[in-house]
Amino acid sequence: MRVLVVEDDPVLRRTLAIALRAEGHTALTAADGRTALQACREDDPDLVVLDLGLPDLSGVEVLRSLRAWTRLPVIVLSARAESSDKVGALDDGADDYVTKPFGMEELLARVRAAGRRADVDVPVLETGSLRIDVGERRATRDGAPVRLTPHEWGLLEVLLRAPGRLVARADLLHEVWGPGYERETNYLRTYVATLRKKLEEDPAHPRHLITEPGIGYRFEP
Rank of each mutant, 00 (worst) to 15 (best):
6 V>W: 02
7 E>C: 03
8 D>A: 07
10 P>V: 09
12 L>P: 02
13 R>E: 08
14 R>E: 13
15 T>V: 07
16 L>A: 10
16 L>W: 06
23 E>A: 14
24 G>V: 13
29 T>G: 03
34 R>N: 13
42 E>M: 10
44 D>F: 11
48 V>P: 01
54 L>G: 09
57 L>E: 04
59 G>P: 05
65 S>N: 14
65 S>V: 14
66 L>W: 03
69 W>G: 15
71 R>Q: 13
73 P>F: 00
77 L>G: 00
80 R>Y: 02
81 A>C: 10
86 K>V: 15
89 A>L: 03
89 A>G: 04
90 L>S: 05
100 K>F: 00
104 M>F: 09
105 E>N: 13
108 L>C: 00
111 V>P: 00
113 A>G: 00
113 A>H: 00
114 A>Q: 09
120 V>S: 11
125 L>N: 02
128 G>Y: 12
129 S>R: 11
129 S>G: 07
129 S>P: 13
130 L>G: 04
132 I>W: 02
133 D>C: 08
134 V>C: 11
134 V>S: 09
144 A>G: 02
149 T>F: 06
150 P>R: 06
153 W>T: 02
155 L>Q: 00
158 V>A: 11
159 L>P: 04
159 L>W: 00
160 L>H: 11
160 L>Q: 10
163 P>M: 04
170 A>K: 08
178 G>T: 08
180 G>P: 05
181 Y>P: 03
186 N>G: 12
187 Y>F: 15
188 L>M: 02
192 V>H: 06
196 R>A: 05
196 R>W: 07
196 R>P: 01
200 E>R: 01
202 D>W: 04
204 A>Y: 07
208 H>T: 11
208 H>W: 10
213 P>K: 06
214 G>N: 05
214 G>A: 05
215 I>P: 01
215 I>M: 11
217 Y>V: 01
217 Y>A: 05
219 F>A: 13
219 F>Y: 13
219 F>S: 07
